[in-house]
């Protein structure tokens, strides 16, 4: 909050209207950035703690694996949680067990067009809200390192799509009881809801929209891709909603599995 006035453009530029106030907005414009910042910071802190906890991430009886640790690919994983083998051997204590997927999904969210808006506004105040002067003296946007890395969203989208498939596989495994037969518990349903939210978030992504058909110049020559593009465009309108909802579902799914795994609560079983 260092700047209060419209900055003069420096020598050689013509003066703007002299208005001393940083903004003349009278609505409570700070509510949204502060709220979003609180949510994002909470998620960052929670997921950091959980990722390094290396405990209570798998419920062996019901085959619940938290999305933060999936896929678990090392010998350090608890028995049963490594559906894809353990190619990495033993991990030292400081390496998170979910090190393969977590950077992908974290990178996917950081470079996501919705989270860029949310993050730049609420965490970096650039700008905090429309028509409110930002506190930074200089601005080069995403033209240079490190922020041009945001353009790599496409890479993260392709990888996150693979992680989504792995999560779907995990969800299918979670519909089993202690004896390995079909079973449904509250945890299975929570995981299912999380998968729907994650799929909505991943498929409504702007990079997905572009890959599906947005890059075409002639829709009429590609009717099938136009169909896909139309579908993704409809989802894309809700991308921000999917982004926030899936953030909370991931958080809640992880918390529920932690609680069941640590025996704080018992899973409510409907079938088997």
């Amino acid at each position: 909050m260092t700047s209060t006035a419209t900055r003069p453009g420096g020598p050689g530029t013509r003066p703007r209207a002299a208005i001393a106030a940083r903004t003349l907005r009278t609505d409570r414009w700070w509510v949204q950035p502060v709220g979003i910042a609180a949510i994002l910071l909470f998620f960052i802190v929670y997921s950091t703690i959980r990722v390094f906890m290396a405990d209570w991430y798998y419920v062996e009886d019901y085959h619940y694996l938290t999305p933060l640790y999936s896929p678990c690919l090392t010998d350090s994983c608890v028995p049963g949680s490594s559906h894809f083998g353990t190619p990495f051997g033993e991990f030292p204590f400081f390496l998170p067990l979910g090190i393969v997927a977590f950077p992908i999904v974290a990178g996917f969210r950081v470079t996501c067009y919705y989270y860029r808006k949310a993050g730049y506004r609420s965490l970096w105040a650039s700008p905090p809200a429309c028509g409110v002067t930002e506190p930074h003296q200089k601005y080069t946007g995403e033209t240079r390192f490190p922020l041009f890395v945001m353009n790599w969203h496409r890479y993260f989208f392709y990888l996150a799509f693979v992680v989504l498939l792995i999560n779907i596989y995990d969800a299918i495994l979670a519909f089993r009881g202690p004896d390995g037969a079909f079973g449904v518990g509250l945890g299975s349903l929570i995981i299912l809801v999380n998968i729907v939210a994650l799929a909505g978030y991943t498929l409504s992504c702007h990079a997905c929209r572009h890959v599906m058909g947005g890059r075409l110049k002639h829709f009429s020559r590609n009717p099938v891709r136009y169909r896909f593009w139309t579908l993704v465009s409809k989802l894309n309108v809700r991308h921000g909603t999917f982004a926030m909802v899936s953030l909370f579902t991931v958080l809640f799914t992880d918390f529920y599995i932690m609680a069941v795994s640590a025996n704080w609560i018992t899973d409510l079983r409907f079938i088997n």
Binding site: Y113, R116, K117, Y120, R121, S126, P127, C130, G131, Y139, T140, G141, E142, T143, L147, F148
Partner: peptide
């Protein structure tokens, strides 16, 4: 045009 300057804050 300086497209890279835009940081998608949607104002």
């Amino acid at each position: 045009q300086g497209l890279g300057y835009c940081n998608i804050t949607k104002c």
